[in-house]
C-alpha cells in the first residue's frame, strides 16, 4: 500500500477538497495504483542531476523588466463582475473572525 484512506483524507483537507465516502475509497485505490507506477522513477540515479522547473532560454537577466509606467487596470467593478457574492466594492465571504 502506497497510500491509506487516512492519508487520502489528510490530503483532501490540505487541498480544501470535500470528497464523499464513496469517492474517498475509489480515490484511495486509484492513487495507490498511480503512485506505485510513479516508483518507476527510482530506477534512475539522479544524484548529480539538476532539477528542471522551467524551460529556459538565453536572455539577458534584465530582459523581462520594463519601464515602471502607469497603466490602466481592470478596476473593481470588472474584477468583481464574476464574484458569486460581492458588495460595497469587495468580495464577500463567510465570517472569518469571531468576536
Amino acid at each position: 500500500m502506497k497510500i491509506t484512506e487516512k492519508e487520502v483524507q489528510y490530503v483532501s483537507a490540505l487541498a480544501h477538497l470535500q470528497l464523499e465516502e464513496e469517492e474517498l475509497q475509489r480515490m484511495c485505490a486509484e492513487l495507490d495504483r498511480i503512485l506505485a507506477y510513479m516508483d518507476k522513477l527510482n530506477e534512475l540515479d539522479t544524484s548529480n542531476v539538476e532539477p528542471m522547473a522551467q524551460v529556459l532560454y538565453d536572455a539577458e537577466e534584465t530582459a523581462t523588466l520594463r519601464e515602471d509606467l502607469e497603466q490602466p487596470t481592470l478596476g473593481s467593478q470588472l474584477a468583481l463582475a464574476n464574484a458569486p457574492v460581492a458588495g460595497a466594492g469587495y468580495f464577500k465571504v463567510p465570517k472569518v473572525i469571531e468576536r
Partner: peptide, 13 residues
C-alpha cells in the same frame, strides 16, 4: 480534476 488535485497535493506535501 479531483484526482489530479489530490495527486498533485500529495506529491508536494
Amino acid at each position: 480534476c479531483k484526482r489530479r488535485i489530490m495527486l498533485g497535493t500529495y506529491v508536494l506535501s
